[in-house]
Design a protein around this nucleic acid. Structure first.
Lengths: 245, 245
DNA sequence: CGGGATCTTGAGGATGCTCAACGCTAGTGG
DNA sequence: CCACTAGCGTTGAGCATCCTCAAGATCCCG
C-alpha cells in the first residue's frame, strides 16, 4: 500500500489548489521557502494537500517512490522492520520536514502518522522537472540532505555507543533543540509519541524507557506535565548527561 | 588540525595538474563521471591529488570544512568521539567514494586513513561554483546524498535492533555487495580494517567481534584467508543470518 | 463509568562487556 | 639471519546492563 491509489477513506482529503502556500506557516522552514511569491504558482500546480489520521500509513518500504511529501502539521515516524517483526524507527518528522529525500526508485522505509498529520504531496516526476526549472530548489534539497546526513551520524553514534540514560536524555534534548530552531521555548517540550515509539527509535525496550524516565524524574532532571509535555529544568546538567562528560 | 594547513610531512604529496582524470580508474563510480571529456579541464583546474599514510588523519570533526575529497585508492574510516573516548565509526569509504557531503560549515566527523590512501582534494568554494556551472554535477551529488541516507538508515537498523552475529554477517555482506557493485567477485572479500575498527563500526567490542568471527568460522560460514581476506562460501545462508529470518 | 491500551514496576535471566592472560605475526635491529 | 618486541587477535571467567516475562497501575475514550 502507499499513496499510489488514493483510497484511504475520509482520513485523506485532497484540496482544491487555492494557494495554501501564501498563508503556509511552515513555508520558510520547508524547501518551498526558497521560491519567491512569483514562482509559487508553478509549485502550487503540482501538489495536493493530504490529511492522515493517527496511526495510518503514509508510505511503505519497498513500494515504488511515486510521491514525496512535506509535513505541514503533526508528527510522522519513519521505520524499518526485520522479518521477525523487530522494528527500528529511523526518525521523526515534524512541521516543515521533508519526507522522501532518502530513496532511490523504491522507498527505503515506511512512514506512519503519529497523531493527525497534514501533508503536501508531490508527484516525484513533476517535482523532478521543477528541480530542473529552479536550480535553487535543487540546491536547497542538497542542503537538506546534507543536514539529514549529519543528523543520521548523530543517531548512529547514539545507537552504537550511548547508554540507555544517555540515549533518553539526548532524545529529549534533540526535541528541545528542534523547538528552539522553530523559535519556541527550549522547555517544556511536547512528546507526541508513545513509549514504544521512543524505545524503537533509541534501540531500547518500552520497559527500559519507562524506568529511565522514572529515574530522571526522581533525580529532578525532568518533570512530566499534563498532555505528554516534559519540563527540562536544567538543560546544562542534561547536556552533560547526554554524552557522558 | 585538518587539511587547512598543508604541512603533514612526506605522507602528503600534491601533484602537478597533468590530467589524472583521463586515466582515472574510479571516474565512472565517482561524481566526476557525469562530466564529459570536454568539461574535465574545468574540474582539473580546481583540485590537487593527495596521498596519506596509514593511520594519518584526513579531516577532524569540528574543523571548518574547507575541503572535500574523492577517494581514489585505499580505505578511509569516518568516526565521531564522545568526551570520554568512546568512538563510533560512522562509515568506511573506498575508491570512488566521496568524502564531505555530510557537513555544514564544520565537518561533522573525523576521517582517518585505514591503509595508504590517495585522494582528490577540492576546495569547497571552488567546487560550489562548479556546481552552479554544471547542474548535472549538483544532481549527481544529490543522488549520492540520497544513497548515503539510505545506507545510513540500514546502519541505524543494524545498530538499534540486530544481534552481534547479525551485525557481523551484515557487515561482511555489505562489503561483498560493494565489491559486486565494482564488478569484482562477491567472495572472497578484503578486510583492510582491524577488529577494533569493525567493533567501533558495529557498536561492539573487539572481543565480541573476535568471538563471533570464530563461531562463524567453526560453523563453516566463513573462512579466513591470507592477507586479511575472507571467503564467504554460502552467501544465501549468510543473507538469512543477516536479518534473522 | 467501563475497558482496552498504555505505562509502570518487579524479578529473573541472557547477551555482550570488562578485565586479564596468552598466542601470533610482522617489523626491527643487532 | 634470527631473536626480540610491540601490536593485534584470541580465549576465558565473571559481571553489568538491558531484555524478557509478568502483573499491577493509570490513562483516556467512548
Amino acid at each position: 500500500m502507499g499513496f499510489g491509489e488514493p483510497k484511504r477513506g475520509p482520513s485523506q482529503v485532497d484540496s482544491e489548489g487555492i494557494s495554501p502556500c501564501a498563508a503556509c506557516s511552515v513555508r520558510d522552514m520547508a524547501f518551498c521557502g526558497v521560491l519567491s511569491d512569483a514562482e509559487l504558482p508553478r509549485l502550487l500546480s503540482i501538489f495536493t494537500t493530504v490529511d492522515v489520521d493517527a496511526h495510518q500509513p503514509i508510505i511503505d518500504e519497498g513500494e515504488t517512490a511515486d510521491y514525496l511529501f512535506n509535513v505541514t502539521d503533526g508528527a510522522v515516524k519513519l521505520y524499518k522492520l526485520l522479518p521477525d517483526g523487530r522494528r527500528q524507527i529511523t526518525g521523526f518528522l515534524f512541521e516543515g520536514d521533508f519526507l522522501g529525500i532518502a530513496m532511490n526508485e523504491k522507498y527505503a522505509y515506511s512512514a506512519e502518522a503519529v497523531g493527525k498529520v497534514s501533508l503536501c504531496r508531490f508527484p516525484r516526476r513533476k517535482l523532478e522537472s521543477l528541480l530542473d526549472e529552479f536550480p535553487k530548489l535543487e540546491k536547497r534539497l542538497l542542503g537538506m540532505a546534507s543536514n539529514e546526513l549529519v543528523q543520521a551520524q548523530d543517531q548512529i553514534l547514539l545507537l552504537g555507543r550511548k547508554t540507555a540514560q544517555e540515549k533518553i536524555v539526548s532524545f529529549l534534548l534533540s526535541l528541545s533543540d528542534r523547538a528552539v530552531k522553530r523559535s519556541s521555548e527550549p522547555s517544556p517540550i511536547a512528546l507526541p509519541m508513545g513509549r514504544a515509539d521512543i524505545a524503537d527509535y533509541l534501540g531500547l525496550t518500552t520497559e527500559t524507557v519507562s524506568r529511565t524516565i522514572t529515574n530522571l524524574k526522581r533525580d529532578g532532571l525532568i518533570r512530566l506535565l499534563q498532555g505528554g509535555r516534559v519540563d527540562l529544568p536544567d538543560l546544562t546538567a542534561l547536556r552533560d548527561l547526554a554524552d557522558g562528560s
